[in-house]
Nucleic acid binder design. Structure first.
Lengths: 150, 150
DNA sequence: CTCTAAGTGGGGAAAAGTGGCAAGAAATGG
DNA sequence: CCATTTCTTGCCACTTTTCCCCACTTAGAG
């Protein structure tokens, strides 16, 4: 399970160095093979390759003529790019993905269980503040969430 | 599985150079024989020949008297054009297909599992942004998608 | 305070992408 | 039927990007 927030700087070539505490596990799980794709909230998702392949299988089995299915396939598989950790534990983010998430220099990497999320730092803190406000306002939660005990 | 976005420029003769990371696999699967056809969303579909033949078989078996079936056959089989990778890993797109998808110079190649999609870059990013908004709005997804966990 | 390890930046070699040129084939007109 | 022109296709060279390696800086631990 990946957890926690880490501030990372993109270098001039668009590379990010993953925090060292994850590196050993990533070498073990996927030999440094990662897949980066997009998320609806204009951030990037980073999966270990085997984890991603599992999701991809579910996606490709969806019916091709269904509009929502096509949309999801195009967004997720369409943007999924395989990246390899280099000798210094860094990955190079392809320009299209960098542009999509508006990443310039200051970014944050968020551990999210089986994957990471990568945000522009300013966007992240702004969105987080919005969520806090929204969450405080709305007490009505959908089904399963009602019974959730933290 | 093909995945990921790549920006490619059409040259003055209407050729596109496929990204090198796919070339070896394409040589293996289909010896450089590709089939290009159209999609309902005004982009082009690029299949390795064996993969296309498989799809074509399914299409010709559809009931000929069904209007939507005829329509699909005319669109897909009717526009399917065989293209061969040249020595530099490029394919020449026939002018009718280029026109159909409105390809001028800046294009994007999208990996979609067993095939590629080829879009005009401007059209692609516009459509993608629309999908992101729609996807955020519509939570009603067909069966399997509901339970999809990314 | 020092030593170590991680994060960051940069330089250089190699490879990929892109545009142009030229030779060959096809088509058209004389 | 031959000659000229146009279009096509393969090849080559230049430019840009990518990848690998090394060095410097900063933070943290001993």
């Amino acid at each position: 399970m990946f957890r926690g927030v880490t501030h990372i700087n993109l270098d001039a070539k668009g590379r990010i160095a993953l925090p060292s505490r994850y590196r050993e596990r990533l070498s073990g799980i996927c030999d440094g093979h990662l897949v980066v794709t997009v998320d609806r909230d204009h951030c990037l998702l980073v999966y270990p390759l085997p984890e991603w392949e599992h999701i991809e299988q579910k996606l490709v089995r969806l019916p091709s003529l269904n509009r929502s299915a096509r949309r999801l396939q195009r967004l997720l598989i369409g943007h999924a790019t395989e990246c390899q950790l280099d000798g210094s534990g860094r990955i190079l983010l392809p320009p299209p993905l960098r542009d999509f998430a508006g990443l310039v220099k200051h970014t944050v990497l968020i551990g999210q269980g089986n994957k990471f999320e990568l945000w522009d730092e300013a966007v992240w803190s702004q969105r987080r503040d919005e969520w806090l406000v929204e969450a405080a306002d709305s007490d009505e939660l959908p089904g399963d969430l009602e019974s959730l005990s933290l």
